[in-house]
Design a protein around this nucleic acid. Structure first.
Lengths: 186, 186
DNA sequence: CCATCAAGTCAACAACTGTTGACTTCGACG
DNA sequence: CGTCGAAGTCAACAGTTGTTGACTTGATGG
């Protein structure tokens, strides 16, 4: 029974990470305290730093994630939205591992840097597969629309946007993504 | 000479407000300290609270502003971007009275509510003048693109976007605003 | 010259923050 | 049983924060 004695150590570590994700997601970086995270798990604050050494490291680990963007090389232009938007909803809703980073990035340079790297390492390369030219500009523009949509719908909760269905949003935003990725501006 | 003795009181109050705007704009709410604002003006922290009673009230006053959106009734569809984008740059750059609110809205429900009201009272009515139908949805979509652009360019500083000129951005984003406001989605 | 009153300073408070190091608890194993 | 090490607690530190109330300054006007 080699697994017996690990019943708690890794479990509470994961619980702390979950609580941290939730706190960072709703309150942002500075308004999240080590004590609050610890108390969410019912544990001493010292244990949190014992496992994660730092508030900064705790945040870094809580903000790690993978967008799982698919390969777009063989996707027809008209179906880009149909492929990308479901990924968008998956990342921002429910599990919402991305929301903490967005909230924190607004007021913390550290988080902003982390978000930039997610963009540079995952979003930009994936979109480069379909961009005609100016790949980096096109990817950044798509990113700006996607970020704005997330901010309006999930942070600000702008009434019309927050209430629209996935399909309605896809119909509105799809052509814009397609335009940014393929059309040459006048 | 009725104005003589007011040489300083209102002036330093305005200076404090300016410093607060700058700090809130670059650091967000929580990372901005009363002491830092006071020291920017070369004044005692106690004076700041003497004039503004609170950090919260100081922020509220610093985040007050008017978008000065023009009347769009007689603007031709193709020139919408030419009229709207300069307003965008004016609001987000330099003085940047809008940036504090955006940063704060990400982690403070109060600030998010304030931002929503700016949208409802200034942006939506102005855009309703040119929206074909679904005026509220169209306005919200325009708002999402504008907000995303501001977040990417001024908060995250995504390299391609942060370095583009006003005219380059207008050329890219203009057609999108026009599309959101006038085109019927498939 | 002296009283007044706005403009501003000073020191200090209570609360909260991240972080530390020494201590306790307790199940497993010889 | 005894001990050993992991899992966790405890109290305290040093620093920072918003905010307060009593004090000083200095020009003005009678």
């Amino acid at each position: 029974m080699p697994e017996r004695r690990a019943r708690s150590a890794v479990a509470t570590r994961a619980a702390i990470l979950d609580a941290a994700r939730a706190r960072f997601g709703t309150n942002g970086y500075e308004r999240t305290t080590m004590r609050a995270v610890a108390s969410d798990v019912g544990v001493d604050p010292a244990l949190v730093v014992r496992y994660f050494t730092n508030k900064e490291s705790l945040f870094a680990e809580a903000a790690e994630f993978d967008l799982h963007l698919p390969d777009l090389h063989d996707v027809p232009v008209q179906e880009l939205a149909t492929v990308l938007m479901p990924r968008f909803f998956a990342v921002w809703e429910n599990d919402g591992a991305f929301l903490p980073l967005l909230r924190a990035a607004a007021s913390s340079p550290r988080a902003a840097e982390a978000m930039l790297q997610v963009f540079a390492r995952q979003v930009a390369p994936a979109l480069a597969a379909v961009a005609a030219d100016h790949a980096d500009e096109r990817a950044a523009l798509v990113g700006s629309q996607v970020l704005g949509l997330a901010f309006s719908r999930y942070v600000l909760r702008v009434p019309p946007l927050a209430d629209m269905t996935h399909e309605q949003l896809m119909r509105w935003v799809g052509p814009v993504l397609e335009y940014y990725l393929t059309t040459e501006p006048q």
